[in-house]
Design a protein around this nucleic acid. Structure first.
Length: 489
RNA sequence: GGUCGGGUGGCCGAGCGGCUAGGCUGAGCUCUGCAAAAGCUCCUACAGCGGUUCAAAUCCGCUCCCGACCUCCA
């Protein structure tokens, strides 16, 4: 097995992947805050880590993949003041905060299912780990890295910086961080402007609250990930991931908390996915250029000319490297859709391929290239490029201009099974011919009758049948071996 | 404003010192009753200006654009 290299945000370079305790791999990814519909950018992050999860497993690792659900403690503004996002939404919809959590957790899982992502090994919730967060906060206080002001506990960044580099992840020095932070209102009782809350005192109107040594309150946003990753993956684990926007604040805070608590670097490899843009601009609610996954699938949004199926969207995402920005546009999506269809058609063609004594190409070479692509920081666009080289090969074999041996044919099928389905996590969406017995029988009948007509050179009727079928999305192709059909969605 | 990251052919998107991916689109050809599909061929790019080097899209400097974070947004 060739070594795997991945880009570590901390070192800002590609590093050889060397798990702490092979064959086990611990991976933590910051999950969604379930107070509204999943953001498409969030989907991209989870789809990227799904690819990573799948490839690590394919490579033989025993992966424990933990992705949390934030269902408490996330405040408007991500500062330590303001309203709880869940409480706000609950008030708006006139329901319990936990109804909000339930509703959007279900919605999130549904969308991730449509994208054919695997469920994480553990999906812990913040509210289910309050005591762990309190314990961790206590430890940090005991180490003198946090202080209490009126029932709220703040992390002391200045103290932390005496011996540690707070800006290590974001690659910034402390002075820049301090001088470049704008003067904010509502700095509250913090000693330092970079300090952040580990535990927040609940105001009387707060619905979601828990007892603690410091009175009734709720956990700060950053502590949950530190507490839960520590609980399920240990004080030191392999991969921690999330969107790039989390680096400067959330992950830097997490890192500081864990180091303050355990005196050890919690994460060996920090991995971050890039942002998603629409027609070149960042997708955001205020810019009005954001659409929900369902709107993307159905095409019901002013920016969308039509809908694109989940697999097309996923394939489209996979054609861009996870560390590059991904730009959504109708043109790009349509291009991916055509490519995806061509790819899947060729894969299906493999079942009908005739083998020869020898192969006119090197299957080993193709296979090697696929692994090389994935071993180079999970380069799915390059992997897909090689998969398309295979498409041309498959079609050429089908046309008789290339040959394949029986054993290579078996290997080729395995290769696509492995990379297309197992690693990229793509799947057949269109019900191509034969998926439904009744439809297959009926179409057989139609095609046989049409064959009769064609043998009598009645092309007018023959074309009529083809045109009419096309109207109900059944495409007839007259090949030299007879007609075949497929049903497009 | 500060810090960090980018600008690649008609579009999307890899590559990141020499061998100049891939997808989509367009043109032509082969096959075909016609389509469709498929195959083959063509259009060959690296924001601009300098510099380093035998050799630069790839390294360095400057300029111009764009994005991220610092401030609600994933």
């Amino acid at each position: 097995m060739e070594p795997l290299f991945l880009y570590n945000t901390l070192s800002r370079q590609k590093e050889k992947f060397d798990p702490i305790q092979p064959p086990f791999v611990g991976m933590y990814v910051c999950g969604p805050t379930v107070y509204s519909d999943v953001h498409l950018g969030n989907c991209r992050t989870f789809i990227s880590f799904d690819l990573i999860y799948r490839y690590l497993m394919h490579a033989g690792y025993k992966v424990r993949y933990v992705r949390n659900i934030t269902d408490a403690g996330h405040l408007e503004g991500d500062r330590d003041e303001g309203e709880d996002k869940f409480a706000k939404k609950a008030k708006l919809e006139q329901v319990e905060p936990m109804e909000i959590v339930q509703k959007y957790s279900l919605g999130f899982h549904e969308v991730m299912g449509l994208f054919n992502t695997l469920a994480p090994s553990i999906e812990p919730t913040a509210t289910g780990h309050i005591s762990e967060q309190i314990e961790m906060t206590k430890k940090i206080i005991a180490q003198d890295f946090a202080y209490e002001v009126n029932g709220t506990i703040y992390f002391d960044v200045q103290k932390y910086c005496e011996k540690n580099n707070y800006g290590a992840l974001s690659n910034r020095n402390l002075d820049d961080l301090l001088t470049n932070t704008r003067e904010l209102s509502g700095q509250g009782d913090k000693k330092g402007r970079l300090d952040f809350a580990l535990w927040i005192k609940a105001k009387p109107e707060h619905l979601m609250r828990w007892p603690s040594p410091w009175g009734w309150g709720f956990p700060g946003w950053h502590i949950e990930c530190s507490a839960m990753s520590m609980k399920y993956l240990g004080e030191r684990f392999d991969i921690h991931g999330g969107g790039m926007d989390l680096i400067a604040t959330h992950h830097s805070n997490e890192l500081a908390q864990s180091v303050a608590c355990n005196h050890t670097e919690p994460v060996k490899y920090w991995m971050h996915t890039n942002m998603l843009t629409v027609n070149g601009a960042r997708m955001s609610k205020t810019a009005g250029n954001g659409f929900l996954p369902h709107e993307l699938f159905t095409g019901k949004h002013p920016l969308l000319e039509r809908g694109y199926s989940p697999m097309v969207v996923k394939f489209f995402m996979m054609q861009t490297h996870y560390r590059s920005t991904l730009d959504f546009s109708n043109e790009a999506l349509s291009a991916s859709e055509k490519g995806f269809t061509r790819l899947m058609s060729a894969v299906k063609l493999m079942d009908n391929l005739k083998s020869s004594d020898t192969s006119s190409f090197s299957l080993e070479e193709l296979k090697k290239k696929c692994y090389q692509a994935m071993n180079d920081d999970f380069n799915s666009p390059v992997l897909i490029a090689h998969l398309f080289d295979g498409v041309r090969l498959i079609n050429s074999i089908n046309d008789g201009t290339a040959t394949i041996s029986a054993s290579d044919l078996q290997e080729l099928k395995k290769l696509y099974q492995a990379f297309l389905y197992d690693v990229l996590g793509l799947k057949e969406e269109k019900s191509l011919g034969g998926s439904n017995e009744l439809a297959a029988d009926l179409m057989n009948l139609v095609l046989n009758i049409r064959k009769e007509i064609r043998s009598k050179k009645d092309f007018t009727t023959s074309d009529l049948i083809r045109d009419e079928l096309k109207k109900i999305n059944i495409v007839i192709k007259d090949t030299k071996d007879g007609a075949v059909w497929e049903h497009s969605v």
